[in-house]
Amino acid sequence: MREAASVKTAWRTKRTPTTLQRTVPKIVVARWMSLTAGAVVLFLIACALVPQWIAPYSPTDMQADRILLPPGSAYWLGTDYFGRDVFSLIVYGARESLFIGFASVLVGGVSGALLGALSGYLGGWVDSVLMRIVDVIMTIPGVLLALAVAAGLGPGLWNIVLAVAIASLPNYARIMRGQILSVKSRPFITASRSIGASELSVFVKHVLPNSLSPLLVMACIGVGTSILTGSGLSFLGLGVLKEIPDWGALLSQGRGYLTVAWWICTFPGMAITLFVLSVNVIGDELRDALDPRKRRE
């Protein structure tokens, strides 16, 4: 075993000129995929930040003479039943959709991680109580929980964020707790304690930094999941009716025209898929990069 490990590590120090052919496609594909994914995410973030620079038309501009036009050179992704440009709608809709995704990960991730860290580090009854609560929350499948919370809170952007955050919280708490527990048992923690470092400083300086990487991966993929959940809520009509609909609402509105104008539904869905796919690809890449087994000593 020892030798196998040294074989794996040896190539890190120096690259041999010959490359075996069968490893080539993997590297190329991985590179190609994550680069594309990065580009997609950056583009959609740009849409959310500065839609006016990207969208060719105003999303609220309704014109009777261009109702339900199929995709073409003037309107790339066609127009909807109010004569609005679908592409521009998607570009402007990015803001709300991405906001739900990022904000709920931030809220759910931070509070979940805190709970998990507390639970894992303190152990004892604190751990038991917190983890039983998490167990209970986990008995309700994520989407359904978000649905119930959103229904209870009533419509509103922040309410959707909160609903999605609560639904994702248990996952973060569990991962963080598991991480803390495993890091806590590693020898360098005992080492630090044995030189007389206080509990707090051991926790802040050693335990926490070493526990964060899987959380990062999860947060990355979580942005995708949150957007799926959030747009699902919008789709079911729990979102806020606004002038500029988010992607889920856009899709929901387009459903009625499915037989006459397929593009209204198809493209917002494609935007969601592309974004989620991209964060998943980036998350996978990140996981590989942070996996201690893959970049061992």
Binding site: G224, L228, S231, G232, F235, G248, L251, S252, R255, L258, T259, W262, C265, T266, P268, G269, M270, I272, T273, V276, L277, N280, V281
Partner: peptide
Amino acid sequence: ALFGISMPTFWSGILLILIFSV
């Protein structure tokens, strides 16, 4: 598989309807 987990079901459902029904 990545597509499988990334597509919102309300969208993939609609796509299937579009293709196989419409």
